[in-house]
């Protein structure tokens, strides 16, 4: 499943669609950045409520296929600009982390 297909299935709003053709190979949920870096796998869709600029650095290093901000969280404009320059996919869901993960798990 590509990021674009996942976004459609989960009704995600694209905030930065840097590479929608990327394959989603798994999922990971977490807000503590070291946990995410230590446990998330490359290709996972990462679901979080964290929206500060550090999520872009973590995404660049841990290499998830997309970052999904749950609970309708919107990052500041500079975070989105940074994600664009780094080629990081960022989407937003109005639903909470549990609901997003439940639906994602069914798709995978």
């Amino acid at each position: 499943m590509t990021v674009a297909e996942m976004a459609k299935e989960l009704s995600l709003k694209p905030l930065v669609a840097a590479d929608e053709t990327r394959e989603v190979t798994g999922g990971y949920a977490g807000d503590l950045l070291s946990w995410v870096m230590g446990r998330a796998q490359s290709g996972d869709a990462w679901v979080t409520i964290m929206s500060n600029a550090n999520i872009v650095a973590v995404a660049t290093l841990a290499d998830p296929s997309a970052v999904i901000l749950s609970e309708g969280v919107l990052p500041e404009e500079n975070v989105l600009k940074l994600a664009e320059t780094k080629g990081v996919n960022i989407y937003m869901s109005e639903e909470d982390t549990f609901s997003v993960c439940g639906k994602l798990a069914k798709l995978l």
């Binding site: 807000d31 503590l32 070291s34 870096m37 230590g38 964290m50 500060n52 550090n54």
Partner: peptide
Amino acid sequence: SLGFGAGMGLPNMKRY
């Protein structure tokens, strides 16, 4: 509150 300070930094460095 920024998502750091989980006490995983040094353990992650060792792990990797």
